[in-house]
Write a protein that binds this DNA or RNA. Structure first.
Lengths: 269, 269
DNA sequence: CGAGACGTTGCACAATATGCAACGGCCATT
DNA sequence: AATGGCCGTTGCATATTGTGCAACGTCTCG
């Protein structure tokens, strides 16, 4: 491991706590001022560190730009797909992946239980937003005012007697979903079809997608389907971990002791 | 400048474009594979880089955690205050700083006018949200559904004949404010008081605060006050730049307003 | 006006990063 | 099933590169 780079990178979490002077940095790194200066200069040249008027250092804009760019470059579908396929393999049921976009919830991937070749059949189509498990999960994570605004702007078609009847009922359901961290649709869209779904958390901790497992009553009862919940949640967490880029099976020694786990909300079970 | 660190940091923007293999990194850095490997390992140990199953590298979770932590540690008031004081010095008028929080807009700083006539406002107190320039600026940047939800949930007191009359008028005003990148309140709260305000953009590009200059008619006419607009906007940009940590060669996407990129003063030497 | 604190510079030394060459696993091709 | 090529990984000798030191400059405070 490169000592120089190691030291330089150790500066970042240090500055994340708040602005620090050259000497403070040097002291906490246990190196001489001149060394710290050169490291900080290099970080500065790359925009990762910014120098205030009072000459103290802070984290810089490039850091945010990088994080943002990385999120945008994230290929949710590509990363999730193997997991979804594995889940389909184990359960045999149809697996969906969906995202929220501009007031709509759309499927972006689907693994069909019996016809793997035709699994893109309905991708891109909007979901039955008032009843689908994935829709509930995605809407439940929106900020409160937006959530209410969307809910109140929707139609509530009575697909079945179990469909969500109105905005009030929908908002109550969203609150429940938000609390429990998973969602289901038991015959709310088509009488004989049930789904169980879980949220996918992105690097920033917010729900960036949702997945669900669907099966008709004739294959498994709702009860049996709900029994898959732990498995589904575990899959969702695994995908989330991969999206966020949490260290996998690599445990190298000699890392600075302060390497604490992510500070993102939610997924910390 | 430290060559080793320089090379290591050059990897980050490269990975921000998307996942890359060891060899791709080595090639683009123009170093040998073994060197690139060591650099990547160091980055990995610090969590800035994540290794996918296919062994390609991506930016890691720690980057997001750092960015988030840095935003939270930002002391908007502390950074803005000198600029606000300078603006007050030049204009002589009252300068306000405000943020949006949970459906309310509150003042978090204020530099009093040097004229005897002062206006009523207090730090920590909610702003007259339907008319104040800072409120318009902050609400105008909210996502559309939330903005509408908030606007429709408000009361519209007729402080004066020029007060915003209803939600429709308010939303129209917000749209205008959003487009033009500044806001004013001409006698909407108190008959004889005018304000001109500008938004403060945070590191993530969103409006994180707003500032305004206020003066009573008896001191300056509305026209004269509006003439201060360029100065106010420049101040707001300067604060924004400092909040973001101005970077050297990084070209940030500017706000949708036609505002030309800020002129960064010479290298800090 | 002087003392102290803090950031900055140039330099000599050796510690540290570098490139090389060889190894090993994996996949696709024959 | 065998083989060649691709890619990541390792150990090592070399000298490039980073390091600590001491002195200087500047600013603030007593």
């Amino acid at each position: 491991m490169s000592q120089t780079v190691d030291r330089a990178l150790s500066i970042l979490p240090l500055l994340a706590e708040g602005p620090a002077s050259l000497e403070q940095v040097a002291t906490r790194l246990d190196v001489h001022k001149s060394t710290a200066l050169r490291l900080l200069r290099t970080l500065h040249d790359h925009g990762l560190v910014y120098r205030q008027q009072d000459q103290r250092y802070r984290l810089g804009a490039r850091l945010f730009a990088l994080a943002q760019q990385a999120v945008e470059a994230l290929d949710i579908r590509g990363i999730a797909h193997p997991h979804l396929a594995a889940l389909n393999e184990r359960t045999g049921h149809t697996v969906h992946l969906a995202v929220y976009e501009q007031g709509e919830v759309v499927y972006i991937d689907k693994v069909e239980s019996r016809y793997p070749v035709r699994m893109y059949s309905r991708i891109g189509r909007p979901v039955a937003i008032t009843v689908a498990a994935v829709a509930k999960l995605l809407l439940a994570d929106l900020p409160e005012p937006e959530r209410r605004a969307v809910a109140e702007g929707l139609d509530y078609p009575r697909y079945t007697p179990r469909s969500t009847p109105d905005a009030a009922a929908f908002l109550a359901e969203l609150a429940r979903v938000r609390d429990q961290g998973w969602a289901c649709d038991l015959g709310g869209h088509e009488e004989s079809i049930n789904c169980v779904g879980a949220p996918l958390h992105g690097p920033d901790g917010r729900v960036c997608a949702a997945m669900s497992v669907s099966a008709p009553n004739v294959v498994v009862t709702a009860e049996e389907l709900l029994r898959l919940r732990p498995l589904i949640l575990r899959t969702a967490e695994a995908i989330g971990a991969e999206l966020s880029g949490v260290a996998g099976p690599s445990s190298r020694a000699a890392a600075p002791a302060a390497a604490s786990p992510s500070v993102t909300k939610g997924a910390t079970r």
